[in-house]
């Protein structure tokens, strides 16, 4: 159907350049057009990359269009749709996942940049039958309404408690020498990258505080 146009050629050069700069931490491999029939979704892409991720403890190999965000790799390729696309621009936090122990917006990073990394999504925290304490606290305190921001809120909340434990300060930390505490202003500041348009903030604060063992 296609022959590579000038645009395609220049794009491939660009990608090769990107690969070089990433190679410092990871070694993604460029695979040219011959891809297995099962990869129909990317069969016409002239440059596809292989990437291996550890998602919720399981090794997952993917062959992707290199433009695929980590978010779309999870949702469209691994069908882990618990991670949500709210804005695709790093503005809402619905796509929050935990990579190597730190929360990130998975829409703001390409999947191929995470070769070999450990990714925890909402599905990796718990299941409906065996919920993570944070998931159970959100149910108990009604820390959600429509549920679309909820996986991101919960992943963020779990990571926030770890950040506090690790002594990482925030914009509202008043004493940088003392270990930060999960006060209500600290909690609200640290959670402010996760928008909830239904407005469950007050309940979310109570859910997180309960898991942290503090009054909201």
């Amino acid at each position: 159907m296609k022959s590579p146009s000038d645009f395609e050629l220049s794009r491939r050069k660009l990608l090769a350049g990107s690969a070089a700069s990433i190679a410092l931490t990871a070694a993604p491999s460029i695979v040219n057009a011959q891809v297995p029939a099962v990869e129909a979704a990317v069969a016409d892409v002239s440059a596809v990359w292989k990437v291996s991720l550890t998602v919720n403890g399981a090794a997952r190999g993917l062959t992707l269009d290199p433009r695929t965000t980590l978010l779309d790799a999870l949702r469209e390729h691994l069908h882990l749709t618990g991670t949500k696309k709210g804005c695709d621009h790093g503005q809402c936090g619905a796509c929050t996942v935990i990579v190597g122990g730190r929360r990130i917006n998975s829409c703001m990073t390409l999947a191929v940049m995470h070769e070999g990394e450990r990714i925890t999504t909402i599905e990796g925290l718990g299941t409906p039958e065996n919920m993570h304490p944070m998931q159970a606290a959100f149910v108990k305190h009604d820390g959600y309404q429509c549920g679309y921001c909820t996986p991101g809120q919960i992943c963020s909340a779990v990571a926030v408690l770890d950040e506090i434990k690790a002594g990482i300060p925030s914009h509202v930390t008043t004493d940088l020498k003392a270990p930060p505490q999960l006060s209500n202003p600290e909690l609200r500041e640290r959670m402010s990258g996760n928008i909830c348009r239904c407005g469950a903030y007050s309940n979310i604060a109570e859910a997180i505080s309960e898991v942290a063992g503090r009054p909201a």
């Binding site: 618990g82 299941t127 919920m131 149910v139 009604d142 996986p151």
Partner: peptide
């Protein structure tokens, strides 16, 4: 508690896309 709560909080509730 919401009966759909365990689905929403574990990412297993299915939205349109």
């Amino acid at each position: 508690d919401r009966i759909d709560g365990p689905l929403k909080t574990t990412g297993t509730a299915r939205y349109a896309y």
